[in-house]
Design a protein around this nucleic acid. Sequence first.
DNA 1: TTTAAATATTGATATAGATCAATGAATTTG
DNA 2: CAAATTCATTGATCTATATCAATATTTAAA
Lengths: 269, 269
Amino acid sequence: MGFLSRERVLSMPTRKLESVVSLNDIRVACKACSLKEICLPVGIDKDDLDHLDAIIDRKRPLARGEHLFHVGDNFQSIYAVRSGSLKTYTTSEDGQEQVMGFQLPGELVGLDAIAENCHPLAAKALETTSVCEIPFDELEKLSGQIGGLQHQLLRVMSQEIRDDEQNMVILGQKSAEQRLAAFLIGLSNRFRRRGFSANQFNLSMSRSDIGNYLGLALETVSRLFTRFQNEGLLSVDRKHIELLDRDQLYTFSGAHCAADEAPKAQTEN
Amino acid sequence: MGFLSRERVLSMPTRKLESVVSLNDIRVACKACSLKEICLPVGIDKDDLDHLDAIIDRKRPLARGEHLFHVGDNFQSIYAVRSGSLKTYTTSEDGQEQVMGFQLPGELVGLDAIAENCHPLAAKALETTSVCEIPFDELEKLSGQIGGLQHQLLRVMSQEIRDDEQNMVILGQKSAEQRLAAFLIGLSNRFRRRGFSANQFNLSMSRSDIGNYLGLALETVSRLFTRFQNEGLLSVDRKHIELLDRDQLYTFSGAHCAADEAPKAQTEN
DNA sequence: TTTAAATATTGATATAGATCAATGAATTTG
DNA sequence: CAAATTCATTGATCTATATCAATATTTAAA
């Protein structure tokens, strides 16, 4: 159990190691992990849940800079971030890196590998990060048996497509200012959805990662942070961000997608 | 049957109308529609195929400019293009349009609507276009029963995520020249995969749509077409494109993803 | 600690591609 | 078939943001 205490995971049940699993423990752990959307879909009974849980593997945490998988790696599993954060990226033949996304606790990585059975992106820990590994063939088998799970899986993938579309809009026609504003509002919403503060958070990624992700030079990102701060929209202290005028920032972002601002109520019990 | 003759669909079986369905006819029609990836997955037996086919509805063709669905429309079905082409797009509150993609025969639309049960994009016919309507709840039910279908569906969605990621790379860090080259190579590959000519095709979308999709001004697109032509890379005649130096164009595109260039062999029987 | 390496900020300058503007095809419409 | 409309091309200019460069700060290492 040693490594668990080093993580920010609340009541981690001991698993695999001791072979006996308490369903209650699992529920608690998964709730802390905020992965309930996938792991605890409404309407799955205890028995099904047991099956589902049985296939999920809690891996040892990754250190900052460690890879969860590399480009071209054989696809076996999808992963859910439990704590910490990841970035996914590719590298073009000229060595140029393109950051494709950042994964926060409760978010999934690897769905883009299903199509070709190998990972098109690499996933790297931005800080100490722990994940759940979900073997895909087993998940698939299970979701054939559990109707709700299948639907949930399709929903999650659909949402990812949607998010990517949003990103295309941002990259395709937003100004630098709008991009950064949208990025911050987006992050804020994601934190809020996971039960973290929406107005105050730490960026685990570098300015360069942000710039790369948003299609901007890191200098531009830096300048914008300063400007936003001067305009009283937020306060920056290195990695720490506090949103002071969320509404204004939202307006700046040239918002279009109502879904971004008003996250619908989760079935929270 | 009247409207069918107006389309470019080969041997369309009469269906629903006459209530008796010949399996052979279906196979032929779906092959022509080049949708076999979804509709004719390997390993689905005749019985299953029958079930699958029974839920698919061939709709009357759309005229140029007609919408298949609008933003916010309730999500019922996904659609497969049989002939013609579509564009999907959103409109931001300031009236600015963002083109998200183009769908060619054999490609699907609407997968991004599963998550929220409503369409985040509108889909509009770029020319006379016919589609198959696949009611999603029925597809979902079926894919719970037919293992191969479930996997196929996940694969298709995964591929869409992947394609969107590719687009992010293009929008995020490619030059105008690279974007257009990548766009043309991409189109060419998609045509080839569907059995059309890879080196000669008609653009059903306007320069403005292309520019919008690529995050460029239409003037830039126009200038690039002229330049590519002057450089002997292709020949343009209004909508008609002939790729003269595909390799060079491919190099220009700053290619990264091997998958783009070498489409793997389809299980063709 | 001190040094070294990585990361961030800020300024000066250059440029790719946007925007504005005019003209020239194509296509559609009456 | 003429008129109108849409779409495409080409040119001139302007601007947002990249790039180059120097310095400052933070983090990691020794």
